[in-house]
């Protein structure tokens, strides 16, 4: 479900915009970056923030899904 919600936010962006997503370790962290790349987005940043939380920055580019 985390990627579903991420994707809905990505749809609102225009090419070049980035989206910051805070993710828990485990399934969300293993799925969201992988699926984002598969679907044509760019993962610009993936850093550990605190405890089990990671920050992911995803960029929509030309050719990414609308």
């Amino acid at each position: 479900m985390t990627f579903v919600k991420t994707k809905l936010e990505l749809e609102k962006l225009i090419a070049g915009d980035t989206l910051e997503v805070l993710l828990c370790e485990g399934e969300p962290l293993s799925n969201v970056p992988k699926t984002a790349i598969e679907q044509g987005f760019t993962v610009v940043e993936n850093v550990h923030v605190k405890d089990n939380v990671h920050k992911l920055v995803i960029q929509k580019r030309e050719g990414s899904p609308a």
């Binding site: 479900m1 990627f3 579903v4 994707k7 809905l8 749809e11 699926t35 044509g40």
Partner: peptide, 23 residues
């Protein structure tokens, strides 16, 4: 815009590139 329960109900559509939330 989709409600929280709709996001869950239609999640398998939303995941599809050709559908998504807009579709």
């Amino acid at each position: 815009s989709l409600r929280a329960d709709q996001i869950e109900r239609y999640s398998r559509h939303i995941l599809l590139q050709d559908i998504g939330g807009k579709g």
